[in-house]
Design a protein around this nucleic acid. Structure first.
Lengths: 204, 204
DNA sequence: CGTATGCTCAAACGATCGTTTGAACCGGCA
DNA sequence: TGCCGGTTCAAACGATCGTTTGAGCATACG
């Protein structure tokens, strides 16, 4: 049972963990409030409903993540010397750094679940609030890969997105060996993902 | 309401559709049996429990899919003239053909959900029954990519798997244009996936 | 001090879940 | 015809779900 921070924060932390573990439907408010060490009614009091709580779990992480992504992108977008690697770094590194924050790694699993669940209201919420981020990155990819048709570019971005989502949500078998520091492992992971994405985007 | 075939088949068909649509937890037996046009108690009578029904949904499709994958792999495995494309064809084409069977496309979504849901008993079932397929493909990839270390190879296979799962479950934006025949679109899709996977696996 | 406000609490609400029950129905065989 | 194993049926079971209620508590302000 978590007992630090405000009631709202304790609920959000426990929600992140249980949503990653059992899904949005699978995690009940009773399990969740018990894990957070708060009363059952606290969720509806502070968030209004379970669905609003789900949205708040996303908002808390995605606001920070996407701001960092767009900041990094703005530093390289449009510049003549910018490479594909630069843009991919702007997209990938903020996510890997988030994975290092406490609870951040769990959130990537929650995010992957959101992709898998075809819940319409959740997808609408994500698209409405964060769709512009993907659009900006796509525009920069299009600039750097002028030889690709629109359909071809979308295909490749779609496949790269799938690979990154899969990898960053930790479903894969890749785990940090004990003799590698966390910082070094993150660097290795970034290199793997970026080189893979470059190959997938720019192959002939 | 579906009203063709045996009760068991009607249940399996409706289950595939509703599991893809709302997830394993999200689809209730009451919705499911209503869609199949059978009595609520029929699921427990024919399958024993909801969990066993889930396993049977997987078994029905995966037995056929993996048999075709292994047959195709056996035709090229170990041969000196075999290319990476050949092995990837053996892996990808049976899945794309399955997507064409009635209900098969839905099943790929169900499969993607199984990846996203971290339900232990389901993962154990899949690993125990179909783990050998991935192992055989991995061995052949290792033979064709001798320059890659074990860790590097696993990384790349993991990323490619994520991309293919994502793409084949139809989460992406790629849809068949109206002026392209279904057969031609499947061929285009196969080419996209295979070229992408080759680039991701064999980049320098 | 008194009271207003924000929050927590145990308890209950109606709905829905997976599962079980026992009777009804059905075709084939003695 | 009469019975019998396999199947379907409506109904009910206890459990659990998200949500609501109203009393109780604490802190701050007049």
């Amino acid at each position: 049972m978590n007992s630090s921070g405000s009631t709202k924060d304790r609920i959000l932390g426990a929600a992140e963990q249980l949503f990653a573990q059992r899904g949005f439907d699978g995690a009940s408010l009773r399990q969740l409030t018990a894990a957070a060490g708060v009363n059952l009614a606290a969720v509806n009091y502070h968030f209004g409903s379970k669905e609003k709580l789900v949205e708040e779990v996303f908002r808390r992480r995605l606001d920070a993540l996407n701001e960092r992504r767009l900041t990094a992108l703005a530093k390289v977008a449009g510049a003549p010397e910018t490479t594909l690697e630069d843009v991919l770094e702007a997209f990938i590194r903020p996510a890997l750094e988030l994975s290092h924050d406490d609870g951040g790694a769990l959130f990537m699993r929650v995010l992957a679940r959101a992709f898998a669940e075809h819940d319409d209201s959740l997808r609408q919420f994500l698209s409405a609030n964060y769709g512009h981020v993907m659009r900006q990155f796509t525009a920069e990819f299009a600039r750097l890969l002028p030889q690709l048709g629109k359909a071809e570019l979308y295909w490749r971005i779609d496949l790269v997105t799938g690979a990154l989502t899969h990898a960053m949500s930790g479903f894969g078998m890749i785990q940090r060996p004990k003799d590698v520091s966390e910082r070094a492992h993150r660097e290795q992971t970034a290199q793997h993902l970026i080189r893979f994405a470059v190959a997938g985007l720019s192959h002939p």
